[in-house]
């Protein structure tokens, strides 16, 4: 019936319109706190859109990292900005006719280009599916991330590390906000943190055959770390020196070593033999999960632990 094909179209139209509306409200609201909260809601709607577009791995990554962690980082920075600067800056109301006249051709050009791109081409899906047996996993996205395009993932882990080094180069942890401690938060943490660690392990394990994988698992671990930091947990100084740094670089190091190890038997860098590929991918993903989780939590901390910022 016509109604049955109309309903999904209606849903998609509503979703698309709410995305645009939320983005517009987030960008133009005068209160920054409201803007960030609207941005988090926008991220959650994007996760719903990814599910609608048959991309469950992307949906998990967006919900945890894009909406959750980015929102937490923005709110923490806003709190620190407000703590350091008591004066209220005047809200900006910006509408520039010149800018609108310049942007309008840009948007029409973009829409035209996007609409003329070829649609419904399988792209690389056929190639990926044909060679899936030699990759050692059955989830095509994990195969692409860890095997076909493993080089990109290696460099992505390095980008995370470099961003953390950049944040650390600014000095120690900024003045910590008063942590809310109390029985309810403690109970919540006691229940949630073990559950989050278990869910991260599950996502890591299941990533070989179903939506999941190292980045989703690492972001759940990062969320657990952010929760601990919000409750006022301090990293013990014994752990803040060498062990922390070892875990942080273990993702990149493990990946590089796994790529090099088979060069002696005549293969290329990052080429695994099909019989070992599954085990190797799991090993790399385990190291990457731990390293991604700790890196994301350290990014939330906002400074080098163990060093007091002199201000």
């Amino acid at each position: 019936m016509a109604a049955m094909t109309l309903l999904p179209l209606l849903f998609d139209t509503l979703l698309g319109l709410s995305l645009i509306w939320l983005a517009w409200r987030a960008l133009t609201s005068t209160d920054l706190f409201q803007a960030i909260v609207l941005f988090i809601a926008f991220g959650l709607l994007m996760a719903l859109t990814w599910v609608r577009l048959d991309a469950p791995d992307v949906a998990m990554a967006e919900a945890a990292i894009g909406a959750g962690l980015t929102g937490a980082l923005l709110l923490a920075t806003l709190a620190r900005l407000k703590a350091n600067n008591k004066t209220k800056s005047a809200p900006e109301k910006k509408f520039s006719l010149l800018l609108t006249l310049i942007i309008l051709p840009v948007v029409t050009g973009l829409v035209y280009v996007v609409l003329t791109l070829p649609q419904n081409t399988p792209g690389l899906a056929i190639l990926v599916a044909e060679n899936l047996k030699t990759t050692g996993v059955t989830n095509p996205v994990t195969a692409v991330l860890l095997n076909y395009r493993g080089y990109d993932t290696l460099l992505e882990l390095a980008v995370l590390l470099v961003a953390l080094l950049g944040v650390w180069s600014f000095g120690g942890v900024p003045k910590p906000h008063e942590a809310y401690s109390g029985p309810v938060l403690n109970m919540l943490l006691r229940l949630l943190i073990p559950l989050l660690i278990m869910v991260a392990g599950y996502l890591l394990w299941v990533g070989a055959n179903a939506p999941g994988g190292a980045f989703q698992a690492g972001s759940v671990l990062g969320a657990a770390g952010v929760l601990l930091l919000l409750a006022g947990w301090q990293l013990s100084t014994r752990f803040a020196e060498l062990p922390l740094r070892i875990i942080l670089v273990s993702g990149v190091v493990m990946f590089t070593m796994a790529g090099i190890v088979f060069i002696v038997s005549g293969r290329q860098f990052l080429e695994y033999p099909p019989s070992f590929a599954g085990a190797f991918i799991l090993l790399i993903e385990a190291a990457a999960t731990l390293s991604i989780g700790i890196t994301l939590a350290a990014l939330f901390l906002g400074g080098r632990p163990g060093l007091r910022r002199h201000k």
Partner: peptide, 17 residues
């Protein structure tokens, strides 16, 4: 159950703050 737990705790924390 997780949503129940989280929403109850977070509501308490917001109200306390």
């Amino acid at each position: 159950l997780l949503v129940l737990l989280a929403s109850a705790s977070v509501a308490h924390l917001i109200a306390k703050a």
